[in-house]
């Protein structure tokens, strides 16, 4: 290439303009449980509380999705506010004084958990189980006749199942299917009130919908309502054993993007694939190949002997 300047690109004379330094994020002073803290402007109350080691429960919140603040388990008491406010989405404002463990906060959190546990099957949601214990929730007090979301599991494809009897309607799958990750829009919230549910148009089976089987909805589901078919089958057969599973990070072999995969294996066999949320390439999201395309690992051996897939420990 010639050194002479292109006639199309004007070359500025004199020193090149300096790149301005990034704007400094101003600090906002607030009080959390009586403790004065300074947090960057634009931070949420959740970030501020976590910053000083206060463990705030969340169910519908996830770092890689837009907060929808619908589960209300993260509510905190803000002085001067008539109602409690959701920590996950409320931004800090100068002079705020919040309480994260007051009587009012504990009551609302306990009730949210009791309401959920009395209507939804949380058996595959360890985080929710821990919260129920932490807040001494007694969902059974609503009585045996309490309405529930119980319904048959939807199995309409070979890759994943949808068990909406476990769905807490956190909107995460809709976000991951939509603008927050996949932009496929195969599912949306339909109906209203207690009848609100996640659905394709007219509830058509996934193969008839816009679903591309990226599985990002499974990746964000907090309750096991969306589950790999492999995991579902093993749980049905009562052989699913997370304590004996290994998790191995590797790079997806399919294309040049280089997504980090976490391969979950049990007894030397791959049982599911995820991606770390803090991984800058994926933000936890994958495509159908990375998420589901691992069967080739198991088909390299002959049909007559049991498969011996090679997975690093």
């Amino acid at each position: 290439m010639s050194d002479s300047p292109s006639p199309l690109i004007p070359i500025p004379r004199g020193p090149l303009p300096a790149i301005p330094p990034p704007p400094e994020r101003r600090l906002v002073r607030i009080a959390i449980d009586g403790q004065a803290v300074s947090v960057p402007e634009g931070a949420t109350l959740l970030e501020a509380a976590r910053g000083i080691g206060i463990d705030t429960p969340t169910l519908c919140y996830l770092e890689n999705l837009t907060p929808v603040n619908v589960c209300r388990v993260c509510v905190v008491e803000l002085e001067g506010s008539r109602t409690l406010v959701p920590a996950c989405s409320r931004k800090v404002e100068p002079g705020m004084s919040i309480h994260t463990d007051s009587e009012r906060v504990r009551l609302s959190r306990r009730l949210v958990l009791e309401l959920l546990a009395s209507s939804v099957d949380l058996s595959a949601a360890p985080a929710a189980q821990a919260y129920l214990e932490r807040y001494a929730a007694h969902p059974e007090r609503f009585g045996p006749a309490a309405s529930t979301a119980a319904q048959p599991v939807k199995i309409d494809n070979s890759l994943y199942v949808r068990d909406y009897g476990k769905c807490i309607l956190c909107y995460k799958c809709v976000e991951a299917c939509g603008v927050d990750a996949q932009n496929t829009f195969a599912i949306a919230v339909a109906g209203r009130g207690f009848e609100a549910h996640i659905s394709t148009e007219y509830g058509v089976p996934l193969p008839e919908s816009a679903c591309v089987y990226c599985g990002n909805c499974i990746g964000v589901c907090p309750t096991g309502a969306l589950m790999f078919k492999s995991e579902f089958d093993m749980r049905q057969a009562r052989v699913w054993d997370e304590s004996s599973q290994t998790q191995t990070d590797t790079i997806c072999p399919y294309c040049g993007v280089g997504c980090t995969l976490t391969v979950h294996a049990q007894d030397g066999r791959i049982v599911k694939v995820t991606s770390p949320l803090d991984q800058p390439v994926t933000n936890g999201h994958l495509c159908i190949k990375g998420r589901f395309g691992w069967q080739f690992v198991e088909t390299i051996t002959s049909d007559t002997s049991p498969p011996t897939p090679r997975v690093a420990p």
Partner: peptide, 19 residues
């Protein structure tokens, strides 16, 4: 019947209240 169903306290709370 009129709860939009978005947040847990109202979606399920209105059901439990009636029960």
């Amino acid at each position: 019947e009129e709860s939009c169903g978005q947040c847990v306290p109202c979606r399920i709370g209105t059901v439990r209240q009636e029960e």
